[in-house]
Computed example of a mutant assay.
Amino acid sequence: MGWSELIARWGADGPVRGVPGGLSVTFEGMTPAEITAQEKSPDEVELVLEWHPPWRPGDAAASLFPLDRLAHACAQARSGLLHCTATSQAIQVRMTLYLEGLSRQSFVGVAAEMARAVTFLDEVGAEAGTQASELQEAERLMAEAQRSLEEAESKVASAPAGTGEARPEARAAAPEKQGLGPPPEASPPPSPPPPPNAAHAWQPTHRIAKGGEPAWSTPDPARAPVSQLNAGLEVQVSDEASGWANIICSNGWSGWVRAQSLTPLRGRRPGT
Rank of each mutant, 00 (worst) to 15 (best):
W3C: 01
E5D: 14
I7Q: 08
W10I: 04
G11W: 03
G14Y: 05
P15M: 04
V16R: 01
V16G: 01
G18Y: 08
V19D: 03
G21N: 08
V25T: 06
V25M: 08
F27K: 12
F27N: 13
G29K: 12
E34W: 13
T36D: 12
Q38R: 12
E39Q: 13
E39G: 02
K40T: 11
E44K: 06
V48W: 07
W51C: 07
P54K: 10
A61C: 07
A61D: 04
A62D: 08
L67I: 07
C74V: 12
R78K: 12
R78H: 13
S79F: 03
L81F: 15
L82W: 07
C84I: 09
T87D: 15
T87C: 14
S88D: 15
A90N: 11
I91P: 00
R94H: 11
T96F: 06
L99D: 04
E100G: 08
E100I: 09
R104F: 06
V108R: 04
G109N: 13
E113D: 15
M114F: 06
M114G: 06
V118G: 06
V118I: 07
T119D: 03
F120E: 00
L121S: 03
D122F: 03
E123L: 12
V124Y: 04
V124P: 01
E127N: 10
E127M: 11
T130M: 10
A132D: 03
A132R: 12
Q136L: 15
A138H: 14
M142G: 15
A145T: 09
L149W: 11
E150A: 13
E150Y: 05
E150P: 01
A152E: 11
A152T: 08
S154N: 14
V156Q: 10
E165P: 00
R167I: 06
P168K: 03
K177D: 02
Q178S: 10
G179W: 06
G181K: 01
P182Q: 10
P182F: 08
P184S: 05
P184M: 04
A186E: 05
P189E: 08
P190M: 01
P190D: 02
P192E: 05
N197P: 00
N197K: 00
N197C: 01
W202H: 02
W202C: 00
T205D: 01
R207S: 10
I208C: 00
E213A: 08
P219E: 06
D220Y: 05
R223E: 12
Q228Y: 14
L229S: 02
A231V: 09
V235K: 02
Q236P: 01
V237M: 11
C249I: 02
C249T: 11
S250C: 10
G252K: 05
W253S: 06
G255C: 04
R258Q: 09
S261I: 02
P264T: 09
G267T: 10
P270E: 14
